[in-house]
């Protein structure tokens, strides 16, 4: 069997206290995998460290022990070109959509940023952006607004559209539909499922919404008291 796309093995994380040398352990020995074409969910209450796991994957925060791999290679030892490819292939929608876009920039500029920084060549950036917006039921007119002029739901969908611009192999969705009304959330999740079915995109879904993760996931990992366990009670039909 080929190596998982993403693997967290025995990862432990603690934060230093603000005034003392003592450390507060967030979670210990967390292990999970995401294989090609899988939808995997991390489920748990707010503050249990789910989002911290995502930040670790991009080395935006450190961890105490354990190993994080991408296609079997430790992410801390990836050469520069491979790391760039990993960052392009694994895209993330962060939790707070209101803060996910530079507040001074027009949305158009924010959307074009990954294309520019990953040096992705297209015949027309704007056409590609328009296609992704349409996929998420958004109008081109939003591109000429600034983040504070849009709703949380619109920003969440824009963040997902921005991820799709660079043709990712895996999406990390951190409470990515929390600000959507039910009908838009259902449409977004259908899109995520079709991305998996049609393009083989893997998804790591992070949520505290049990119904959502049960409806979407092939496997669910649950946080309990700083440890992560596979939810054996879950029987998914999403992949069927």
């Amino acid at each position: 069997m080929s190596a998982p796309l993403i693997e967290f093995a025995q990862v432990t994380k603690s934060f230093a206290g603000p005034l003392t040398r003592s450390r507060h352990q967030v979670f210990a020995n967390v292990s999970f995998t995401v294989h090609e074409g899988e939808i995997v969910s991390l489920f748990g209450p707010s503050g249990c460290g789910k989002s911290t796991l995502l930040r670790m994957f991009y080395q935006l925060t450190s961890w105490d022990s354990g190993r994080i791999t991408y296609q079997g290679t430790d992410i801390t030892s990836l050469p520069k070109s491979a790391r760039r490819e990993m960052h392009r292939a694994v895209q993330v929608v962060f939790q707070d959509p209101r803060n996910a876009f530079n507040p001074r920039w027009l949305i158009r500029r924010s959307m074009a940023e990954p294309l520019k920084l990953f040096k992705i060549v297209t015949t027309n950036h704007q056409t590609l952006i328009g296609e992704k917006l349409a996929l998420l039921g958004l109008e081109d007119g939003l591109l000429d607004r600034r983040p504070h002029q849009l709703s949380g739901g619109q920003l969440q969908r824009l963040a997902l559209a921005r991820c799709l611009l660079v043709s990712p192999r895996c999406l990390l969705l951190d409470e990515a539909s929390s600000m959507l009304d039910l009908s838009v959330q259902a449409r977004m999740m259908e899109l995520v499922k079709s991305l998996r079915t049609d393009e083989g995109i893997s998804v790591l879904l992070i949520s505290h919404d049990r119904d959502l993760v049960q409806a979407m996931s092939d496997r669910i990992y649950s946080f309990h008291d700083g440890t992560l366990s596979t939810d054996i009670a879950h029987t998914s039909d999403s992949s069927k």
């Binding site: 960052h87 707070d96 803060n99 876009f101 507040p103």
Partner: peptide, 9 residues
Amino acid sequence: QFVEAAKVY
């Protein structure tokens, strides 16, 4: 977060 989002690139 928008800086962290940009760091992903």
